[in-house]
Amino acid sequence: MPSYVDGFVIPVPKANLAVYKRVATKASKVWKDHGALAYFECVGDDLETKDMTPFTKLAKTKEDEVVIFSWAVFKSRKDRDKANKAIMSDPRMAGMMENCKDIFNAKRMAYGGFKVIVEA
């Protein structure tokens, strides 16, 4: 049973969404090759909320941007740490990391590792 998740929230210009999707599709293969049990990249669709903080506000998106909500699932933090080390040294990532500069501003990306506390 998986017990660890890496999560990402990324504001991406709408004009770059198709390119982002192509890069994310390639990245998903790298994550899976290095131990991710599952990998998801989602684009905001219903983000207007009442009485809560919408992702658009959280990500400080501009009018021409969308919110990407992504996560990768691992068996454990140890497996995640091992995978991330391998992912970052994987030669397939070098080109993708360079392309990211043109697709979105990585300094505005939120990232964190999470212990699973409920799985249903």
Score class of each variant (00 low, 15 high):
T53A: 10
P54W: 00
L37V: 14
V116I: 14
S89F: 09
L37S: 00
K75H: 01
K75W: 13
E41M: 11
K82V: 15
A38E: 14
N99C: 02
G44C: 04
V67Y: 08
E48T: 08
M93H: 00
V73N: 08
V66E: 05
F69L: 11
G44T: 05
K75N: 13
G112D: 12
P54K: 00
K57Q: 09
S70Y: 05
G95V: 01
M88C: 06
E41K: 02
D51F: 13
K57T: 04
M93A: 04
D102N: 01
L58T: 13
A83W: 15
V43W: 13
F40R: 09
M93Q: 08
E48F: 08
F55T: 11
W71D: 00
D45W: 04
G113Q: 07
R92E: 13
D102M: 09
L58Y: 06
D102S: 05
V116C: 04
W71N: 13
E48V: 06
C42W: 00
S76G: 08
P54T: 08
A38I: 02
A94R: 12
I117G: 03
K107L: 09
T49E: 14
K50S: 10
R80E: 13
K78D: 07
I87C: 10
M93N: 04
K85N: 11
D79I: 11
T49V: 15
R77P: 06
F69R: 02
K82Y: 15
